[in-house]
Nucleic acid binder design. Sequence first.
RNA 1: GGUGCCAUCGCCAAGUGGUAAGGCCGCAGCCUGCAAAGCUGCUAUCCCCAGUUCAAAUCUGGGUGGCACCUCCA
Length: 466
Amino acid sequence: MHIFDSVQKTKRKFTPLKEGKVTLYVCGPTVYDNAHLGHAKSALVFDLLARVLEANGYEVTYARNITDIDDKIIKKALEQKKDIKTVTDFYTEAFHTEMEAIGVKRPTLEPKATQSLEAMIDLIQKLIDKGHAYTTPDNDVYFDTTSDSRYLTLSHRNQNEEEKQERVVSSHHKKNHADFALWKNVKDETIAFDSPFGAGRPGWHLECSAMIEKHLAYSDTPFAIDIHGGGADLLFPHHENEAAQTRCATNHELANYWIHNGFVTIDGEKMSKSLGNSFFLKDALKEYDGEVLRFYLLSTHYRSNFNFNTQDLEASKKRLDKLYRLKKRLFGVTPCSDETAFKKALLDALNDDMNVSLSLALIDEMINSTNETLDTPGKHKLLKREAVANLAYIEELLGFGVKNPFEYFQFGINEATKERIETRIKQRNIAKKAKDFSLADKIRDEILSLGVHLMDTPQGTFWEKV
RNA sequence: GGUGCCAUCGCCAAGUGGUAAGGCCGCAGCCUGCAAAGCUGCUAUCCCCAGUUCAAAUCUGGGUGGCACCUCCA
């Protein structure tokens, strides 16, 4: 298996720190608002990574945090006149529901900031003791970036002279412009936690380092964990700062491999809450099956930027439809248990830095050749069983085709309409038998106006939402 | 301004030194009462210029265009 390490900027062969095991940490959401398509993309990418690692036989411990301490959360709670916890619980649950809808499995661990305060305080104390952190006159605790000789080696930045001069002037008691808060002393009555440094709140970058130490870190390897992931915008300053805290406090580097996914854009511009062009997952789920969104968002390489538009989404849906039609065609067939050439090729493609595009090409070729054979006379028993096994593998690895194929094609149709369609189909079949094709066509047109296609097959008449 | 990424058929998108995968759309055909679905066939020399090489979409240099990070951000 090879993955592209965004710190070394090269595709590297993956070798775990401990034989047969993988520790993976991904930066999760700050729960103050609904998840947009960008959050979905990131969750999807690392869900796929975890699946591929597991398919390679690794025992994967995957942690994705939930940031439930944050200024934006406090702001939201004040606006809505609600408790912090009411707000964070609401959005955490929404996140879970929406992730489930797009087939993202729950990570092994989902640590929350509010449950990790002790670990964060420990980490700050270590940094203070070792001279990497200092307290300001305002009683904030800051990380001293100049105390870390390897600072900026992760994101490959350099501090230019101009910036260095400017920062002395503009800083609020910070020694250096790049220094960041580990603990913010509370200056209002909103929310505060006790600590040896006074009542306050932890800085955002801290929680990931603390959670990794608490839940995942090895103590006898040069790196705390195997893989750290997140969106490309987190490389700097978030991951740079995490890495600095961890190496300075613990004497090991944070992660052996770093993976960053590309952005979801709209009209070529990054989707973000601050730009106000977010497309919320919950809204997309009203229009489209979650699996269609999964397929679409995962259909291009994870490191590329992904320009969202509904035309491409529709094209993706048609591609997924083909998979489900084959599934429908093979409904009830027992899979064979043998290895198939297809399965091997599919895993090989995904093992190459998650080459989903190549996997999709392989899947389409498999679907086409299976359909082709099925169109010729004969029972094709073995081929059918192999094809079903292949489809099951696609489900397991990529999470495509997990639904009942008949239900998949009925997305968004209510029960009353379903009954009406079934009744009309029966009437139409009577008309067909009587060779009254004008009535049959009239009924078909009527059903088509509901957005439903009829398909006459030797096994009977089926229907699908267009 | 600093740093980095990207540019392949109408659209989406693999390939990163050996002569252009796949999907959508379109056209022609098979099948079908007619459709739908399925199947078959057809459609690019890779932003521009120069260079390296027996050989480049793939490497180097220079352009042009787009995007991102440097502030909260998946």
